[in-house]
Amino acid sequence: MAIVASGNCLERNAWICGDYVETRSDELTAALREHIGLTVSAVLIGLAIAIPLVLLARRWRFTVPWIGGLASVLYTVPSLAFFALLLPVTGLSATTVRIGLVTYTLVILFRGLLAGLDAVPASARDAARGMGYGPVRLLLRVELPLALPAIIAAIRLATVSTIALVTVGAMIGHGGLGNLIYDGLTSTFKAEVLTSSVLCVALAVVADLLLVALQWLVTPWRHGRRGGRRGRGGPATREQAATREQAATREQAATEWAVATHAAAEQSVSARTVAAKTEGTTA
């Protein structure tokens, strides 16, 4: 199993081949760049649509089942079919892939944001109202900070699944690293397939870790750095600061489960989970 041997690993069609990475680094970089570009734009556009949509849905509660139902239908349609259905409209372009990806991120983000905001304890909301907070200040100073872990969990889920999903875009020639995987399939080029597959998974892991770091930075009260952010000293912050490290970890796992199951349209179960966990840790 000397697959890392130097020399003509390209001729031997080895799985792991340093020469491949060296000679085709331009190709790999370009594919990686397209992959990152598609993912970032899909998540950002998804967020830009999901945020106002969630605020509207919270304002007019009766729309939630309708949006939720439409979202599960869209989420159920397989990506390959989705891209194919967009072909008559947007053709063999990157836009086709991007619209498909945005649809999936939008569904995940809408549900995650809504579940996160809904899970804010009523007591925290009442306390803020009692202190004279208006709806905007309530949202920005109490609800959003409390929902941040759930929101970032949704962004992580959307990002990681988008990175995996981009590869299917290879079908119409815009799949980032997926293009190389597809190319390696037709020419049975093992190093090309393995290298780009590993890069794809590595990209997902790195993106996930970056988002975990982001969460750590924006929720300082969850790891005991009291007063790290003076501007956020509302009742919510103090309540969250009391949360112990261990409980926070457990809650994080619960939120992730909730968003994951939520992504599959099981609203009641996950809403209950989030609510139960949040109550449990803030009490």
């Binding site: 590869t167 997926g178 995987i181 597809y182 397939v193 780009s196 597959s197």
Partner: peptide, 10 residues
């Protein structure tokens, strides 16, 4: 979730 189905198939 992180491993692309397409990559595994290929």
């Amino acid at each position: 979730r992180a491993v692309p189905t397409f990559a595994v198939l290929v």
